[in-house]
Design a protein around this nucleic acid. Sequence first.
DNA 1: TGTGCCGGGCT
DNA 2: AGCCCGGCACA
Length: 459
Amino acid sequence: MDSRYIMDKSRVSGVDYSFRTGRSVRSPPDRHGTVLYTFVLDSAAEGKGENLAAKGIGLSADGRLLHVVEKMSRREQHDAGLVEGLRMATPPHCPGLNGQVPRGLMHLDIRNPGAQAELQGQGSTPTERQPHSSHIPVPRNRKPSGHADKEVMAATVLTSLSTSPMVLQPSSAPTVPEAANRGWKEVLSASYSSSTSGNWSWDASDQSVPSTPSPPLSNDSNKNFLLSSNNDDISDDIHESTHFMFEDPIPRKRKNSMKVMFKCLWKNCEKVLSTSSGIQRHIRTMHLGRNSDSDYSDGEEDFYYSEIEVNMDSLTEGLSSLTPTSPTTTAPPPVFPSLLVDVPHSEHIEVTGPHSHAPSLLSQSAPSTLCHIRTDHAYQGPVNHVRPVSTGEKRQPAISTHTAVTKSHAFVTPATKATPGTRKPRGEAKKCRKVYGMEKKDMWCTACRWKKACQRFTD
DNA sequence: TGTGCCGGGCT
DNA sequence: AGCCCGGCACA
């Protein structure tokens, strides 16, 4: 067997595996009936080759991962090395292997590296792992646990289903009940070693932008987590225990790393807050148009947010790997200042997806967009003297955003800059030079021609 | 590096 | 006053 599959970028215990493609080669069963999978990773992994090598995975000279672990017997390599290699190199989504996990060796749920990491103990990193010389002694065809366990799990799942607001969105991507359900099924049908699934897979690449009708929706909840909870007061033991009791039918998670967050389900609002009161206030004020000063709640906002679980380990790793200027993570802050003013900063987590700038139906965040629309084509006619407000201007600092209005302030108020002269702040509008270009200099206003302040496109 | 424009010189 | 340009600040 030699099946190709796509390996999504995944992250396992702090190691970023950027393998894009790979190949699994199935070896003949040994005398134990063990089926071995050797993963051959294509050169897409080159960038991480050294990293992997440092973690103890053998690489060939050209950066391919050809085999795992030296100085071990073939048997040990198979049992430990390959398992280790699979643990470390296998991304969460391996469609080609789903449902085809060979018995014996492959007890690990290869779709869930987090679960595998857990097998190594909490917080273990690949560098900390030592190859084990014996395979995990899980009998084949293991039956699910007894009736008592089933009942407990079923009860827990039912409880979860009945309490979670996500029931309202059957089409949602990994919702809590769904995850719980999956975990439950796995617990009942598979071995213990795969029981901690239902974790979040932090693969933002396969997240599609939702375009479903407004509220509620939560299709891309995952991708928000990575972007959201940097400055957050997350530690909340009440939520933690509640989450454990009602949301998590899975026997043991890494409790320390799982946090409950609250995600706004309003369309195009991907705000994630750490407290229910915060998200309720957000919904009340931003979407329901309620008075932000009043804490009165009629419960309606409960329908528009949901609890989500966040793996803080993955979260922090993801955050640490993001550059502060990453265009996917930082939206231009000054664009919608009105979005930010009502929410206390201690609780506010601005989650700005690719489409989140679109104003929600009831949100008050539209004015600047409308302004831009109005002046989008201001430059297309030479006689159009509507003051251009450029949409494509790179610079949009808070200072210069309102220079058109407050320009006189630059002369009245003390100079904010250290520059000695009283040089006018540069205007936002495109000037004749930019509008007409050097080749049409005769169309410039005289001031521009004389290198003076433009008179046609004044600020 | 391109752009806006201040300051100043020249006619 | 009109014209021109060196040079600075800024993005």
